[in-house]
């Protein structure tokens, strides 16, 4: 499994790419592997406030549904609209074209976010 070193990872298995005051988030390779093929993703709305540790949407695979737990607190600035028509990038390209949302931070990054090495240990990879 692939866990890029330039990203941070949340306990809810989302990755976070920090770029100043706005971060991009998506699901980790571990999460996509556990879910199986994603058939639908329920994303938050642009402008919606999200809170770290709280549900901000859901990912549906063929047989199960998993909540998307916001990895940071802030306001949703942009969502990956293309996933609505074709969620395949969530499985095939989770760190690039499978991104979920861009979030404007309302404060500092939560302490629960860990680096790739610590995340690898967490998921036993």
């Amino acid at each position: 499994m692939n866990f890029p070193d330039d990203l941070l990872y949340s306990p809810g298995h989302l990755w976070v790419r920090a770029q100043g005051g706005t971060v991009t988030v998506g699901i980790s390779d571990f999460a996509q592997d556990q879910l199986g093929r994603v058939v639908y993703v329920d994303l938050p709305s642009v402008g919606q406030a999200v809170a770290a540790g709280q549900e901000m949407g859901a990912v549906e695979s063929a047989k199960s549904v998993s909540d998307l737990i916001a990895p940071v607190s802030g306001r949703v600035a942009e969502i990956n609209e293309a996933l609505a028509d074709n969620p395949a990038p969530l499985n095939d390209d989770p760190y690039a074209s499978g991104w979920l949302a861009r979030i404007e931070l309302s404060g500092a990054l939560p302490a629960e976010l860990v680096d790739a090495a610590a995340y690898r240990k967490l998921v036993g990879a």
Binding site: G36, R37, V39, A62, N86, P87, A88, N91, D92
Partner: peptide
């Protein structure tokens, strides 16, 4: 198999 590498959608 529930699917192969290509996946259910493909």
């Amino acid at each position: 198999p529930v699917s192969y590498q290509a996946g259910i959608v493909a």
